[in-house]
Simulated scan of single mutants.
Amino acid sequence: MAAMDEDERVLGECSPAEIAAYLRDIGDEESAVRLERQAARPQGQGLGAYFGRDQYLYKGLVVGFVPSDVSSRGVIRDANAIEPETDLKGRRVKITLDQFFVQAYPGNGTHRILCEFAGQNQIADDTEELKFTLMVEAADGQPTGVVGKPIFMGLTIGDDGLNFRGQTVNVGNDTDDLILDALNGEAFKGGLTLATTLQPALKPFVGLATSVVKATIKRSRNKPVFKFDVGLDFNARNLSARLRRGSYVVVQCNDEEWDWSRFEFATETRRVIRKSDGRSLELNYFVIGIDDFAGEPAKPATKSRNRQRPSG
């Protein structure tokens, strides 16, 4: 496997000096100084205290699941401890971005964040590589203005489930006309609608989306912040996340032990909140929805569809 280009590293994989230099380049002198002071402390090579305030430096992730039939406050389950819905094999689904909550991102004021999502469409004995890209904006401690945004419409689920990937890029360049012109085009305004046969026109679109992201990353004031790769399958005996209809909460976090029982999901705002005080989870996270694609004929519900395995 080829080594990763330095431009492709997320910010948390960079050295303290590199992070501080980037923060200064985008005008965040206060955070740069705070990072340098923390890194200079003799008791630790890590940046734990700094991370507690600037969560965009976390490199780990956890994945929770919220059933589609929850009331106003829903239980969040570990996505590795739910029962898969095997009737999804071979079905067409829609994948939507239901929430992107920004607790902290590099820089000051309103952040511009480029989001790239990737997956595969299973058609007969072949697969189509998929990518969809969009630009969002939000200040620290706020959600982006995206609710139920279509990503992939009509994606066919293979027998092995679904692999869903994504990354975010902090866009610090205020005059990046190349990015804005591309993302304002018709091809990027709606979700990627898929057919039941291979689409020759899809490869150029995927290539364009890939080129936009690569061009963005190579600008000095733009930097990848978070990457995730989530496999959702039907094997209830392994440690992978399981595939069901509902919402997946992908949280950018550290490597500490995680307990989903401390949190619940507020359906009206699509936010993760703490049970102890009702405050919002103070981390960056996505909420990704998976449901049947409109027009797909319904299949009889299976027992696995309505039975949840108790977490733990």
Rank of each mutant, 00 (worst) to 15 (best):
W258S: 00
L194R: 01
R262N: 09
G109Y: 11
I19E: 00
V102I: 11
A187M: 12
C253N: 05
V272F: 13
Y285D: 09
K89H: 13
G145P: 08
T193D: 04
G119K: 07
Y58L: 10
G289S: 13
R262K: 11
G190E: 11
F228N: 01
G295N: 14
Q199K: 00
E116Y: 00
G64N: 08
R34H: 12
T196S: 04
R271D: 07
Y105S: 06
E29S: 09
S261T: 13
I179C: 01
V213I: 10
V146S: 09
M135N: 03
L178Y: 08
N235V: 13
T86I: 13
I151L: 12
D5E: 10
F117L: 07
F263V: 03
Q308E: 15
D126T: 10
L134E: 05
E282R: 14
D69R: 10
L130P: 05
I76N: 01
N254A: 04
G44S: 15
D54P: 02
P150C: 00
G74W: 12
R24K: 08
G231Q: 13
V225G: 05
S220P: 11
D125A: 02
G312C: 12
D7P: 03
V272I: 10
R9S: 02
D176A: 02
K89M: 15
L208I: 13
S220K: 14
G295S: 13
E282D: 06
A301Q: 12
A2K: 08
A139V: 03
H111D: 07
P143T: 04
V62N: 08
P300D: 07
A138V: 02
T193S: 04
Y105Q: 08
R245A: 13
G161C: 11
A209I: 04
E256D: 07
A2I: 14
V63A: 04
I26Q: 04
G231K: 15
G161P: 11
P67K: 03
A104T: 12
V251H: 07
S304C: 11
S311R: 14
S276G: 05
I217W: 06
